[in-house]
């Protein structure tokens, strides 16, 4: 672990809240998980160019999910240089710069996070497999729900949106018991 921990929750929470507010003030609420679909669509359309097509009244797709809501996902697949996609790419750069500014992560932490190591040892293979399966379930769930932690939970509850509350209820109802079962040892 690194010497410098996270920000004090008051400072960190205020900064995080300001970012969510600025996004709504200037553009629209923050959301991330849709961009996994857009990237999938970009790759799939490159492999199979007939996937997304442009017609007289906008874009559509042979995939029902990309074609839904008037083809808005199909449009983003066809035009990757759009706000939401660039936003996620910029997030990666922002995270990278922030980590580098505080000295980077050490080698052990880059392979297997401390809490996982304390509970399941430092085998990277086991950890990578868990992260892969976790990623599959997280994104499948996020697409079924129509949003993730940022779009549904943070942006949603901030706007007093009913769906945000339903989502948060489901997410914590599963996350807390699973975590209590998995991580019994403290790091």
């Amino acid at each position: 672990m690194h010497a410098d921990g996270p920000l004090n929750w008051k400072v960190g929470g205020l900064a995080l809240g300001l970012v969510f507010f600025l996004a709504v003030l200037l553009v629209k609420p923050i959301g991330v998980s849709t961009q996994f679909v857009i990237l999938d669509g970009i790759v799939a359309d490159a492999v199979n160019p007939g996937l997304v097509t442009q017609g007289e009244d906008g874009y559509t797709s042979t995939n029902a999910y990309l074609a839904k809501s008037g083809g808005k996902y199909a449009k983003s697949v066809a035009n990757p240089l759009n706000y939401s996609f660039i936003f996620v790419l910029a997030m990666a750069v922002g995270g990278f710069l922030s980590v580098m500014a505080r000295g980077g992560l050490d080698r052990a932490e880059r392979a297997v996070p401390a809490l996982w190591r304390a509970n399941f040892g430092d085998s990277p293979v086991k950890r990578y497999l868990a992260a892969f399966l976790g990623g599959f379930v997280v994104l499948y769930g996020a697409r079924l729900a129509g949003g993730c932690t940022s779009g549904h939970m943070m942006s949603g509850m901030m706007q007093t949106s009913l769906s945000g509350y339903i989502f948060a209820l489901g997410a914590f109802a599963a996350a807390v018991p699973v975590s209590l079962i998995l991580f019994k040892k403290e790091a």
């Binding site: 923050i30 991330v32 998980s33 961009q35 996994f36 996620v88 997030m91 990666a92 750069v93 922002g94 995270g95 990278f96 922030s98 980590v99 980077g104 992560l105 880059r110 996070p113 809490l115 996982w116 868990a130 992260a131 399966l133 976790g134 990623g135 599959f136 379930v137 997280v138 994104l139 499948y140 769930g141 996020a142 697409r143 079924l144 729900a145 129509g146 993730c148 932690t149 940022s150 549904h152 769906s163 339903i166 989502f167 948060a168 209820l169 489901g170 997410a171 914590f172 109802a173 599963a174 996350a175 807390v176 699973v178 975590s179 998995l182």
Partner: peptide, 29 residues
């Protein structure tokens, strides 16, 4: 929304990442 939330929650607990933080974590090495 609720069912998807349950799935996301379970995966979030196992992996420790949600979609946005996973991207940031990957970029941080």
């Amino acid at each position: 929304v609720f069912v998807g939330g349950l799935l996301l929650g379970a995966g979030w607990a196992v992996a420790g990442y949600c979609p946005g933080t996973g991207v940031v974590a990957a970029a941080s090495g």
